[in-house]
Every structure is written in C-alpha cells, then in structure tokens.
Design a protein around this nucleic acid. Structure first.
Length: 480
RNA sequence: GCGGAAGUAGCUCAAUUGGUAGAGCGAUAGCCUUCCAAGCUAUAGGUUGCGGGUUCGAUCCUCGUCUUCCGCUCCA
C-alpha cells in the first residue's frame, strides 16, 4: 500500500511536470480540490471525451447527443429532490466528532424536557428553534444550543462547532442584483438536463423507444471534503447517457448496459482484472437497481462509472412539477406510458485519472555497464495527446527542412510534435514521458532513399520505413 | 469538518544554535553532430506559501491563514 501511495504521488507530480494537470490558481496558493488541465492533459481529456461521444452517438443509431445549459430553472432541483434532501444546518461536537442535524438535536432536547415534565420549556425551545431556522440565523441556533446546555449523547459535552449550512449545491444569482434576482443553482448533475429535454428530443428527432440521450458537461458539488487529486473535485465533468425504455424491460436493459459499458472500458486496453462491479445494496430514492464500475486506482478500487436503473422517477417528478405530460405512446404494444430510464454516468476526470494510472510506468533500463531508467505513459494511441514526434537527427544538412515537410504533411490528420534540440535519446525520453506512441527520425540516409527510422514507444524498437508509410502506420494505430 | 504532519528555484533537497539562501537535475542560448536521458560553455529562476507578532534583525520562535499529505468523517 505504501508503494501504491508513492505511485499515486508520482503520478500527480508527473502530471504537473509534464503539463497534464495543475492545481487551480496556483500562483494564488491554489483553490482546494479544483484543478486545471494543461497542454497535454486537455488533449488527453478531449480524446477520452471524443471517444466516449463517438461510442455512444456514432456507434448506436438510437442514441443522440445534447448539450444542455449548466443553469437550469430552480424548480428542476425541487422536482429532482436535490433541494429538499441536501440543505440542512448541521453542527459537530468537537469531542466526539459526531455530526448532528441542528433540528434533530434540539428536538431531542425538547423531548427529554417534556419527558421530565417541563412541557412549557420544551415548547418554548421548539418555538425559538423554528423562528431561528426560518431566518437561517445560525449564530442564534448555536446560542440556543449553548444556552439550553444541550449535550452530545456520546461525549456528554457541550463543546460545539459553529452551525453550518450543508448545501451540496452551489448557488448564484440570475438577473440583476437590485431586482428580485432569482437564486439558481449550478447543476449538481447533468442528468436533469436530459430529462427536461426528453419531450423536445423525442418529438423533434422522432425517436422511438428504446432510445438514448447522451451528454457531456460540467457539474458542481460543494463536497464537504474533496480530495484525492482529480478523483473528487468540486467542479467536474460527467459523461452521461439516459436510455429510455418500456416499463418492465428495465432489468434486461440494465444488464445490457452493464455489459456494454464494461466492453467500452476494456476497449481502452485495460485488463479485466483491473475492474469490478460493485452492486449497490442501499439504493437511492429513484433507483430500482444500481451498480458501479470500479477501477483499481493506485488508491484502491474506486468508482469510475455508475449504472443506474432510475425507473420513471425523474420523468414523473418533472411531469408533476411542470404539469407537462411526459408520456410516450408505444405503437408496438399500443400503450401510453412514462418511460423507464437506465442511466450510464461516467466521471470524465476520473476516466482521465484511470487512463493516467494505467499508463504510468517507471522502467529500469539499466545494463551492467550503466544505470538507466525512463518514465513512460503507455496511452492507447487513440488517447495520446501527441501521436507523432518528428525529429531531425541533427539540426543541419537540410534534415530539419525534411522534418518540417513531414510535420506539414501530417498535422492535418493528427497531432504532431517537432523537436530538434538535444540528443536523440533525450528527445525520445521526453516523448515517452508524455506518451507519444511514435517518433520518426530523419538522418543522412533519408536524403538518399526517403526512409526514416520509426521508433515505437512501448518496445523502444526501431525500424526503417518509407516516409509515405508514416501516415498509414499512425492512422491505423489511432483508429484501432 | 476534526486530529496529526508538511510547505525553501520548474523538480529533488541543503543551509543558518535568529545575522536577509546553495547544489544537483531541469529550463534557455551557444558549442558538438552522435539513433535511446545525465559531453562542454554561458545565462535565467527564490520578498524561504501568505499575513500579523516578538526581536536591532525572522526562512528559523510565535499566532493566524491558505494549500497539500495521512487518519477519521462525509460523499444524494
């Protein structure tokens, strides 16, 4: 475990050193649990996003994509249950570390007062609490707790933290401040953007059930503790697909998508034993089945993707709150129903971390004569930020010009990188460190017979090929 | 959020019992022209995380704060 932790730290350092992921606002000492993607990280992330998008919308005829706004009507979050469930004032006892909902704590005290025959005191306490809660007067609530000498049942002390509001949604104002600005939330999940557009997409696209709507986008959760690098961030990106099915068929579609999504993961070249399914025992209020696909990160098996059978909960809720019929008439069975939903939801940032964790390798290349090592990112070529490095062996004798020509030929097809500084070995190692799968080197012989040396990242093998073969080799690898 | 630890150059670290910081690697420029990093020369980079306090003087002592790590807690 110690070595795994070192490995995780090494990956984080490597990400920073080679332009993959930086702490946000670092010159101002950073912002907790927020990260920026650098020149290589943003390419990697984009490649993963694009691959997922193609896998969903291009490889499945009956799945279409949308891109909904981050701002949504406030009622959305009432319908989804987010507003009610996650905005309670809480207080911690510093001695027992136990956290209480403030209303529960005070109510418990009132009950014991009443049991002790002090009903009037109990009523007064509850009345005071309601007044303070209504005004969100947290200081007043703390004083109320202190003045009534309410104790923690575990530690028996009254050593309390301040009262804090635990609202996992970020809020902001829509509209000018002087007017009656509406408080709105940054979406805590992208799924609702799909549900509220269900009718739009179904009708405008003449979609027939079963069909899916895919979306990639940012979501925001004000996690109390967000840690472990990009694994748990306050601002993160989700890749979600909601698949609408006929009621009663949700179990088989759930199984179908479990299998289908696992296939996608394996297509990243990651071996099966690095994954496992984790079935949820305790289900969320909207689900009738749920599981996670967990990847064996250096910090252990952790969720990368969730597959949930969400029933008709979301569409029904939106129907109730919006008064718009969410029905679908199914001509095959002549039935009118609210569709059931199977959701696949993968964290893009977690997928990036997964691909990085899988790719990162420190290799010892020492020979009896001398010590040698390299750090390599063994990305699948389709995900690599740079596909091809073009390197003149020396920067004279016309070799740079030939190299530039090669770059100009291929840069329209895939991302190329030109480099003439330093020895060829150093340049190869730098490309290993950012995961470039192919390097070609131009030397004196190139001028005679139009051949170059192609060097493969993983095997370090080198062979001589014709210049016009480069495109075929690279394209075949990245389209695999 | 609680408890513990840490923060010095891009990275890894050093230093001063309190007297305003050095090295290696890396980077940049040049030399060399060589198919797997660590040949040569030169150059650039630090208000020692930030802000108070004590002191003639703080990177060092002290308080606060931010960030990170470890453990707990939380994670619809």
């Amino acid at each position: 475990m110690a070595t795994d932790n070192n490995r995780f730290q090494a990956i984080i350092s490597h990400c920073k050193e080679y332009g993959f992921i930086f702490p946000s606002s670092e010159i101002y000492e950073g912002l907790s649990a927020v990260y920026d993607y650098g020149q290589n990280g943003s390419e990697l992330k984009r490649n993963i996003r694009d691959y997922w998008w193609r896998s969903m919308t291009q490889f499945h005829e009956n799945i279409v994509g949308i891109d909904a706004a981050i701002f949504m009507h406030p009622t959305t979050w009432k319908a989804s249950g987010h507003v009610d469930n996650f905005s309670d004032p809480m207080i911690d006892n510093k001695d027992s570390k136990k956290r209480y909902r403030v209303d529960h704590l005070i109510e418990a005290q009132a009950e014991s007062l009443e049991a002790g025959g002090k009903k009037e005191e109990a009523d007064a306490l509850l009345q005071a609490m309601d007044a303070l809660l209504a005004e969100s007067d947290f200081e007043g609530l703390k004083k109320l707790i202190e003045n009534n000498k309410i104790k923690c049942s575990i530690s028996g002390t009254s050593n309390w933290t301040d009262v804090r509001q635990f609202n996992l949604m970020f809020s902001t104002q829509l509209g000018s401040v002087s007017d009656e600005a509406n408080e709105i939330y940054l979406r805590p999940e992208t799924a609702q953007g799909i549900f509220v557009n269900f009718l739009n997409v179904q009708k405008s696209g003449r979609m027939k059930i079963p069909f899916g709507i895919a979306q990639v986008g940012k979501a925001f959760r004000n996690e109390i503790v967000a840690r472990q690098f990009v694994f748990r961030m306050r601002e993160f990106e989700q890749m979600e697909m909601q698949f609408f099915v006929r009621p009663g068929t949700q179990k088989e579609w759930y199984e179908y998508w479990k299998e289908e999504r696992m296939k996608w993961h394996l297509s990243l070249g990651i071996s099966k034993n690095k994954y496992r399914f984790h079935d949820h025992v305790k289900l969320a209020h909207y689900a009738d089945a749920a599981c996670d696909i967990e990847y064996n990160f250096p910090i252990g098996f952790k969720e990368v993707e969730g597959i949930h059978s969400r029933t008709d909960y979301d569409l029904s809720q939106h129907q109730e709150y919006s008064k718009k019929k969410m029905n679908y008439f199914d001509h095959e069975v002549n039935q009118n129903y609210i569709p059931y939903v199977i959701e696949t939801s993968i964290g893009l940032d977690r997928a990036v971390l997964m691909v990085l964790s899988e790719a990162y390798e420190e290799q010892d290349l020492s020979t009896p004569e001398r010590k040698d090592s390299r750090v390599i990112l063994k990305f699948p070529p389709k995900l690599a930020p740079v596909k091809l490095a073009v390197l003149p062996l020396v920067k004279k004798d016309g070799l740079p010009e030939i190299a530039r020509d090669i770059v100009n030929t291929y840069k329209k097809q895939f991302r190329c990188f030109y480099e003439e500084k330093d020895t060829i070995g150093k340049r190869y190692r730098r490309m290993d460190a950012i995961g470039t799968p192919f390097c070609v080197t131009i030397d004196q012989q190139t001028k005679e017979d139009n051949t170059v040396t192609i060097r493969y990242r993983d095997s370090m093998e080198q062979t001589r090929i014709q210049i016009d073969q480069i495109g075929k080799i690279v394209n075949e690898a990245i389209n695999e």
